[in-house]
Nucleic acid binder design. Sequence first.
DNA 1: ACATAAGCTGAGGCACCCCTCCGGTTGTTC
DNA 2: GAACAACCGGAGGGGTGCCTCAGCTTATGT
Lengths: 184, 184
Amino acid sequence: MEASLEGIARDAGVAIGTLYRHFPTRLDLLLAALEPRLREFADGSKKALEIDDPWDGFVSYLENLFRVQAGDRGFNDFLSRRFPGNADTERIHDQMCQQIEDVLTRAQDAGQVRPDITLADIVNLIWSNGRMIDATTATAPTAWRRSLYLILDAYRAERAHPIPEPPMTEKQLYDAMVHLSTTA
Amino acid sequence: MEASLEGIARDAGVAIGTLYRHFPTRLDLLLAALEPRLREFADGSKKALEIDDPWDGFVSYLENLFRVQAGDRGFNDFLSRRFPGNADTERIHDQMCQQIEDVLTRAQDAGQVRPDITLADIVNLIWSNGRMIDATTATAPTAWRRSLYLILDAYRAERAHPIPEPPMTEKQLYDAMVHLSTTA
DNA sequence: ACATAAGCTGAGGCACCCCTCCGGTTGTTC
DNA sequence: GAACAACCGGAGGGGTGCCTCAGCTTATGT
């Protein structure tokens, strides 16, 4: 996301004008580069959704998400942000959010995930994981799995203690994601 | 950490040369700006360490840490990174790590925090929290408390589930922190 | 009052980066 | 093989940021 377009053109062995010709905006390029990842992610998600046990499905969904996130810096950057005004990315994000809510609600209805968790908490998880991946891919590339399995113990219904802070509202969450796309 | 020095000088109503005169490097400036935060943090830590119950002390320590982190972007940036070669920052970081280990070990010895947690896991927490704060300060400034109390449920010793991934080694952790100071 | 020190300024050199645009190259079609 | 379209290159204008340094201003001390 922060890569220099001139550097990308150089690495691609192509002039800067050509890069702009094919991808008028940085987001166009990112989306094109992300296509295989999005497919990979979708495949994993499909498998996760087919798992009978709701808890296992929930875990599998997150593990797939985090794995793909860890494997691609662009995807990692993309996941945490919203790009208001771009219909493509908004659709992708909306679909993901819907999927997360589905898999989460199913596990909650089964009494396996604590009921006070919301989509915003999972997005938090994505942010957190993204930062961890930034820090560790170079030096401890599988470290993200540890924090995933650790946080899962917080999500189990039977271990739940009350949380003295409400989840973010939908608007707060959206604004936060937009904020990340304009600053960090 | 990413602020433009020229912008800082402008905001301070001073020429760029003057800024450089007082603070030859960006790190010098950061440390000077951070001094009150470091003191505030130290005060809170002291109170936390005086709490009798090891679990409560652990919680209080983290809550203090996260609160200060949420209140100051510079401190937030500073916390996640290591600046190799700078004796001052290395000392501060080493002290913090030592403190964290103390408060953590005490709670583990009391059987209140699960024994498989290490310093590296707490540093993960700091990274995660830092990212969350970047995302939410503008829109949901107290959201960090929620994720703190959520993760605490994962840290409780009772009914802990095994984690299929070892903690980072000391070297991995150090390298990751240095990595963040040169890239993100 | 004068010398010396300390402090401040901002232009300027260098390095990136973004994005545009025009001239040149390659390909296609009849 | 001519006309046309599609494609590519890269110089260049505009912007920002880093950091230095020569010259000016303001203490300080005797």
